[in-house]
Design a binder for these strands. Structure first.
Lengths: 193, 193
DNA sequence: TCTAGAAGTTACAGACCGGTAACACCCTAG
DNA sequence: CTAGGGTGTTACCGGTCTGTAACTTCTAGA
């Protein structure tokens, strides 16, 4: 018999998956460990046997989310082998799919907003993961033959980051609705230089 | 004798100003009403005599912050009377000043991230205020003689929103460092069309 | 100077939080 | 069959949170 949340797997995996989902939906400070374990079909003691604290659970969730996102890049390569420009367009399309209605945005950015303590252990993890993502996009732009690759990658990054947070303020019909047009126009402009 | 926080003014004003500051620095869920009243040199009962709940205090803080931001537009008009294009460049410069190190970003966007409950009373206020800001920027672009005023305004909005949240993830040396160059380049591009 | 309302003080209620202790249980490997 | 590790259960600790009650003190205006 399954459990709705996930196939009857090991408690640690269920906790991790459930926590990712609940942190994303309700925010990190908006959900307690009791609620997570209950939704995961287990209990608090088991959580603390696998994670030494809630902060460590947060960090593991961020790493897991980043790992999932990282796998998408493999799909780009698989769908458009060697064609870096096509992969860049695929990135735009994939990014725009993150802007569906009532999305809660980027987990790492949201965590950075919520965890305001400057010495919170998750902060350095967020920075590392975000920088890794940035370098991937820079490399993609460069390999696509774009001159100012860093500048285009950073511009696209800010546009997407802005779109994801804007959606949470004003919804999907706000400025973020024009994301694809903005991004494609930018890429065309950079290619023409 | 003054009190560090603010001149000896009326408790309600001190609470409002202190709450704005503390919500900005530590996040809404990261600060309790006790801490606010203590920092404001008053007490919890006085707070609840002026605000019927913490949620209402949050809303009043957002309105106050938006009102402050609104006054900046008057400065643009005062510094460059009638010259809407100069005012647009002033907007870019002012926006870039929001990207100083260890900034905590936009209060309204942060609140939208923190208050994940879709029916939270602050959500509609955030949406209203953000939409008002958007329309101001659209009007500025249009009056500056730019053809696709809405698209430029939305692009600039997303860039700034993204820069402000990116800073909280990766710091001021990340993609947000190029904000001015991106924005100016965009304006030039739209003007050339 | 007197008075009314604003502000301060203390204590408390009820809920939730992260985290731990002690113990019972189950299921699989040997 | 048995031993042991992973898991479940219950209860609890100390702390924090929003919000309220009852009472005292202050202060400005008539």
């Amino acid at each position: 018999m399954t459990d709705g949340v996930a196939e009857r797997s090991r408690p640690r995996d269920r906790i991790l998956e459930t926590a990712q989902d609940m942190f994303h939906k309700h925010g990190i400070k908006g959900v307690g460990v009791d609620a997570i374990t209950e939704a995961a079909g287990t209990n608090k003691m088991t959580l603390y046997r696998h994670f030494e604290s809630k902060d460590e659970l947060i960090i593991e969730c961020l790493r897991a989310t980043a790992a999932k996102a990282s796998r998408i890049w493999d799909e780009f390569e698989a769908e458009h082998p060697g064609d870096k420009l096509a992969q860049l367009h695929a990135w735009v399309r994939k990014a725009s799919q993150l802007l569906s209605a009532d999305s809660r945005g980027c987990d790492m950015a949201n965590a950075a907003v919520e965890l305001s303590e400057s010495d919170h252990p998750a902060r350095r993890v967020i920075k590392e993961l975000k920088e890794a993502q940035r370098e991937k996009l820079v490399a993609l732009c460069r390999d696509a033959g774009i001159g100012q690759a860093e500048l285009l990658a950073d511009t696209l990054s800010l546009l997407l980051e802005g779109a994801r947070v804007s959606m949470q303020s004003v919804g999907a019909e706000g400025p973020s609705a024009q994301f694809v047009r903005m991004a494609e126009s930018l890429i065309a402009s950079f290619r023409a230089r």
